[in-house]
Nucleic acid binder design. Sequence first.
DNA 1: TGTACATCAGTGAACGCGCGTTCACTGATGTAC
DNA 2: TGTACATCAGTGAACGCGCGTTCACTGATGTAC
Lengths: 217, 217
Amino acid sequence: MATKGANTPRERYRAQVRAEVMERAWEQIATAGASALSLNAIAKQMGMSGPALYRYFASRDDLITELVREAYRSLAETLRTASAADADLAGLAHALRDWALTDPQRYFLVYGTPVPGYHAPADITAISSEIMTTLLDACTVLAPDGASTPFGTYLEGHREWAADHPAPPEALHRFLTFWTRLHGVLSLELAGHFTGMDLDPALLFAAELDDLLSPRS
Amino acid sequence: MATKGANTPRERYRAQVRAEVMERAWEQIATAGASALSLNAIAKQMGMSGPALYRYFASRDDLITELVREAYRSLAETLRTASAADADLAGLAHALRDWALTDPQRYFLVYGTPVPGYHAPADITAISSEIMTTLLDACTVLAPDGASTPFGTYLEGHREWAADHPAPPEALHRFLTFWTRLHGVLSLELAGHFTGMDLDPALLFAAELDDLLSPRS
DNA sequence: TGTACATCAGTGAACGCGCGTTCACTGATGTAC
DNA sequence: TGTACATCAGTGAACGCGCGTTCACTGATGTAC
């Protein structure tokens, strides 16, 4: 099979230009949002003519899909790395937060407002699963702490999405609250809904995380 | 002062056309997202020529701002109505959820991915405050339940955003968790991140709400 | 090392499109006397 | 009730724009012998 790394000079050059196109694309997205992304504008910025980019991407949609893929991959790797460095749930939470703050629009490309009708390619949903698995692992490691909740019981019968994961229902429940609560704080923070509120979102995030790590009942 | 209701037939007609434009705009947003909104397309759909709409909206941006305003107003009214009907926090939560499910893209226009550089007019942030106040009221009514958390203590010194509200720090804390947690579940649900997971988001929402209403420690 | 050929990156012109927006105008509706 | 005038909704033509994308072509880079 063809290795991913570039062997011939031409392949290396191709990879390099592709990378620069995507870099410019991220800059553009950060400045004006994903919907404003324009192939021609990127080409101009790189000192090339518009059609040149078609050597590297089949279409504008292809570029965007590639960006989404890269975003997912980046997050998956960030969490995988943290996890490999023995990070617990709290560590993963902070890795997630740091990743989101690095490039808010990249975070929104993954978890933000969806474009109606858009369906991600299969390999992207696979990366999404990997992200969830990493978090699930960390949730499973935590000692089960307390009686099972009604929702936990429900999850016992609805765990198809984690069919190949040995997490007990309590861990599944914890994963879901971990995911949704942190996303809740993060997305409102990144969208600027706390600005002018004289409130440090980092502390709210930390408070939610604390609550998550020492659940009651 | 000019009353908002239309008096003369002409004013009534104007209001009617304006309303229809916005209705079509909502349809378009629901179908293809807010960034795909086009004045000409709306005009065509109404059997009018493009420039005609400039009698009713100063520009495309003006239309969008109006839509955002309408979304905020609608949510504020929904919560106000529920509150006036003696709804408690749980009732408000369900009112919020129902409102969001009615038109996901409308929800995202309020709480979704922001357009970098866009700043809402002052009167919109005022409506946003009203929404928060309604929720804060419901949080204040609930009996304080337990020792103040470290974050609650922090909020005692950082409550500028609720300066004119008599809520104690615990209520402020509860409001923030209420807001962020429910938004977390809702936005992931509306974005389709639970599809194919064999999981009923309504139950997760209910579980989070339960937790919110009977906090520990 | 040199020559002949194939590969491929990039160009410039062109197509068609839909967009937001302006402008001068027509024709209908409302108002004043 | 009727006439004269003002208001204003809507039209059609036009402008300029930038977009995505195609195509035939040039010129540089790499490959085979």
